[in-house]
Measured scan of single mutants.
Amino acid sequence: MPSETPQAEVGPTGCPHRSGPHSAKGSLEKGSPEDKEAKEPLWIRPDAPSRCTWQLGRPASESPHHHTAPAKSPKILPDILKKIGDTPMVRINKIGKKFGLKCELLAKCEFFNAGGSVKDRISLRMIEDAERDGTLKPGDTIIEPTSGNTGIGLALAAAVRGYRCIIVMPEKMSSEKVDVLRALGAEIVRTPTNARFDSPESHVGVAWRLKNEIPNSHILDQYRNASNPLAHYDTTADEILQQCDGKLDMLVASVGTGGTITGIARKLKEKCPGCRIIGVDPEGSILAEPEELNQTEQTTYEVEGIGYDFIPTVLDRTVVDKWFKSNDEEAFTFARMLIAQEGLLCGGSAGSTVAVAVKAAQELQEGQRCVVILPDSVRNYMTKFLSDRWMLQKGFLKEEDLTEKKPWWWHLRVQELGLSAPLTVLPTITCGHTIEILREKGFDQAPVVDEAGVILGMVTLGNMLSSLLAGKVQPSDQVGKVIYKQFKQIRLTDTLGRLSHILEMDHFALVV
């Protein structure tokens, strides 16, 4: 994948999101292997301009796509893939009243899908469409860049269908997702969380590099694949309309690839034109409109599966009536509230959605109805927002919020430890010299600072030695090549209790 991002070429006709291997024109390309080798690009942008032909009021008969309808489940399912879809609609009884809503608040519980998330729908649909058009064949390999849930859905379907599955996901995604993927037989590649989507090191860039190296491999490409919004247009939206008897006044959905909100909203605009569509985008993402909503100094966020630093091709923002931004604290607070007060075992993005819903639905009156999409299960986040310690460490809970008995030293300040200034190293000294210094002084790690004293990161003896043994660096290389740029900081005025929580999850903390 090139470091400079080429513009994806656009073909003359058809839909841009065809499933299957992508040609340089962004659509299915038939021909000899030699032709494909000559024409197939190194990668295709996940934010390529959409060429979708959908228009409100256009006859369904003019759609270029294969459409399906929700099917009634048999008493005995032939395999677990038949437990994807037909998820329950559940009334939220307490939270709406707590925040003064007059309307009825309903939750579409997508964590009841077989793999635990709304992404099971698009995973199965992308595979079925690729099999139907002859792209996927027995023994082929599926590769997908994902925040985890699409990966789980694909790995689940691949396990049943017999495909090899490789999932490329950023490091910030939970260990629970990784464990589930491994249990399903998927191979996992992790990428830096802070890598831009168009960087060769991003999950998108690495996935395309693997595709170019592995024979008979395919990126189904949830960011561009029409099967993504079509899955929701054909099934999720129809289920909502049936469950609500066609009567709903507002739908609120958090947005990642945009397939969920695009597919549902398009069908609702056709069948229930008075329904307002509300999009939820986390602070630090750029999906919301108008652009002024996205202006923030924050560039990272903890909530998973929603928000991006690019506009995915499948996201149709014209069908969203209003956007709201959400933050991590309210997302996790509301997710825990949904679990504790409503018994809905949902993930953090569901918290984002409901946090926005109780604001947006203030305009609705008694007798009206708001539906929220709860995308995934708490299963993926047992060591994250479900953990009091994690919430404390991230600053989303305060010590006084917890009532468990603490040891005698818990409320003492870090400054009472009488710490001395640490050994520091410059980023320009060599790895070999740094190892000598650390061994001589008896230290395992040291902060790396520039000549102005600005902290650049941390270097550890173990990481340097393993990097040297693996051949990633040489003793003569500058130590700046092996620094940890993500590390926890703590102030002298913070409590030892807070430091204790940090050290339970990290090997060190830097006192500043």
Rank of each mutant, 00 (worst) to 15 (best):
E62P: 15
G100Y: 01
V160L: 11
E9Q: 04
C109H: 01
V10T: 08
N93V: 01
E239G: 10
A231E: 01
I80S: 11
A8S: 01
S19E: 15
T260Y: 01
I142P: 05
V90Y: 01
L56K: 08
L184I: 13
K94D: 01
M250A: 01
E128L: 09
N228I: 01
G258F: 04
T257I: 01
L106Y: 09
S61F: 08
G256E: 04
T68D: 15
K30E: 14
D179F: 03
K30F: 01
P192H: 13
D79V: 14
I261L: 07
K97L: 10
H17L: 11
L251D: 01
A157I: 06
S199E: 05
T13S: 01
P2F: 11
C15V: 07
N194R: 01
P192D: 09
Q55C: 14
K267I: 13
I167S: 08
E34V: 09
S227T: 15
E34I: 01
G11Y: 13
K102P: 04
S147Q: 01
L241A: 13
D129C: 06
S61H: 01
D35P: 09
D249Q: 01
Q7L: 09
L105T: 11
I76K: 15
K267W: 08
H218C: 13
S199D: 12
K75F: 04
G100H: 01
P273R: 08
N228V: 01
I166T: 15
P138A: 01
L77P: 04
K108A: 01
D245A: 03
P200M: 12
P21I: 04
T135W: 15
G246I: 06
K25S: 09
I166G: 03
V206N: 04
I76Q: 04
V206T: 05
A226L: 05
K39D: 12
D234V: 01
V10H: 01
P215D: 12
D35K: 05
A186L: 04
S199L: 08
K247Q: 13
T236W: 01
S123G: 05
S23W: 13
R121F: 05
S73V: 11
A130F: 07
P138M: 05
P2L: 13
G162C: 03
L124V: 09
K267D: 05
P6S: 15
A157G: 10
F112C: 01
G31M: 01
R209W: 08
K247L: 09
L268K: 06
D35A: 13
A60S: 11
T260K: 01
P138I: 01
P200T: 08
R125T: 05
R164G: 01
C244D: 01
L136W: 06
R190F: 01
D35L: 05
A159E: 11
G263S: 01
G31I: 01
A207L: 01
S63V: 07
P6R: 01
D221N: 08
G259L: 01
Y233F: 10
P41G: 07
E110M: 06
C275M: 15
R224S: 01
V255G: 07
P12G: 07
H22V: 14
D221C: 07
A157R: 04
L220R: 04
L268V: 07
T68W: 07
G246C: 03
S202M: 01
C165M: 08
T13V: 14
K39M: 14
R132W: 05
A24C: 10
K137N: 14
L136I: 08
W43P: 09
C275R: 06
A8L: 13
Q222V: 05
S63C: 11
A130M: 01
R45G: 13
L56R: 12
E62Y: 13
P192A: 01
F112L: 06
P138Q: 07
R161E: 04
E213R: 15
I214V: 07
H218V: 15
T260D: 04
R125P: 13
P138L: 11
S3I: 01
P6M: 15
P33Y: 01
K25P: 12
H66Q: 15
I214Y: 07
P70V: 01
D120V: 01
S3V: 14
P16I: 15
R190I: 01
G151S: 04
K137G: 07
Q7V: 13
C109N: 08
T68I: 12
S3L: 10
P6V: 04
K82N: 13
A130V: 08
L241W: 10
L154T: 01
S123N: 15
H67V: 15
H218I: 10
A231P: 13
N225G: 01
P215Y: 08
K97S: 14
L241K: 05
L154V: 08
N216G: 05
A38M: 05
A69Y: 14
E104C: 10
L241V: 11
K94M: 10
P12C: 04
K102L: 07
E187F: 01
Y223S: 01
E62K: 13
E128A: 01
V168I: 09
L230E: 15
E171V: 14
S61N: 01
H65P: 06
